[in-house]
């Protein structure tokens, strides 16, 4: 029993070793990019929208609405990064219904790479929005005594992001495989559906957490302001 698609080697000739993770990552990327390119090549402004354009606009608009509701800010700077994370993870997780497809998110190397992207993106967004000095100063925020904990927190939440996504997807696949050998009729289908639900939730959670980390690093003052206005609303 393979617990990671890293171990499934599809093509091996000495300099190049192609495992299932790389192959299916590229398939997913090709699918997403190809679909987007194909749809955006024939954009129109007429009242009769092509159905694919309508669907794509719904997706992008939905992501924008979610970002605006969560960060209480303009979604534009976060849209490309967080939206890409969400679409990639959810496509990986949903394509597991296709027989023979191994979700790349079920491998720790993929999820670690995604979490590292978030780890790098947090200071980039933070420095771009409030400058190097104010970003570094936010580490000393309540008191300088908390500095080590802030730094440990940066690393541990990256680890948590990676292991959370990997653990959920991997356990879903493993459970389905074990149940297939125990009760091959009907029960694996139910677990598979449950796995799909968890896949969607985990994609959502991963991108929301990435968004929260980035947004909290990039605008401390603004958020305090919004918290106070929210309290006034209540």
């Amino acid at each position: 029993m393979e617990i990671s698609p890293d171990n499934i080697v599809i093509y091996a000739r000495e300099p190049i070793v192609l495992n299932a993770t790389i192959l299916f990552t590229w398939i997913t990327m090709g699918l997403l990019v190809g679909l987007s390119v194909w749809v955006t090549r024939q954009l129109s402004l007429r009242p009769q929208l092509p159905p694919w354009q309508n669907g794509l606009e719904m997706v992008v608009d939905g992501i924008c609405t979610q970002i605006r509701e969560i960060t209480q800010q303009d979604p534009e700077p976060y849209l490309s990064f967080v939206g890409t994370l969400f679409l990639f993870i959810i496509t990986c997780n949903l394509l597991t219904v296709v027989p023979g497809y191994h979700a790349p998110t079920g491998s720790l190397s993929t999820t670690a790479a995604l979490a590292l992207c978030v780890f790098v993106a947090v200071p980039i967004f933070g420095i771009r929005q409030q400058g190097l000095g104010r970003y570094l100063k936010s580490y000393l925020e309540p008191t300088p005594i908390m500095l080590p904990f802030q730094i440990i927190g940066e690393f541990s939440r990256t680890l948590a992001l990676a292991v959370r996504l990997f653990g959920n997807i991997m356990s879903g696949n493993l459970l389905a495989a074990i149940l297939l050998s125990l009760v091959p009729l009907f029960v694996p289908i139910v677990m598979h559906v449950l796995g799909l639900v968890f896949g969607v939730i985990q994609a959502y959670v991963f991108s929301v957490l990435a968004l929260v980390y980035i947004a909290s690093a990039s605008s401390v003052q603004q958020q305090n302001h919004h918290v106070s206005t929210q309290e006034n609303d209540l």
């Binding site: 029993m1 617990i3 509701e69 969560i70 948590a160 292991v163 959370r164 990997f166 653990g167 959920n168 991997m170 356990s171 493993l174 939730i201 985990q202 959502y204 959670v205 929301v208 957490l209 929260v212």
Partner: peptide, 29 residues
């Protein structure tokens, strides 16, 4: 708002259980 926050919070709470799962998988496999 409550449902959204609940899902994110549940995922964070659940991650400790997922760590245990990963550790036991490592022990076994």
């Amino acid at each position: 708002v409550i449902t959204r926050t609940l899902f994110v919070g549940l995922a964070m709470v659940e991650s400790t259980a997922i760590y245990c799962l990963v550790v036991s998988m490592i022990l076994l496999f």
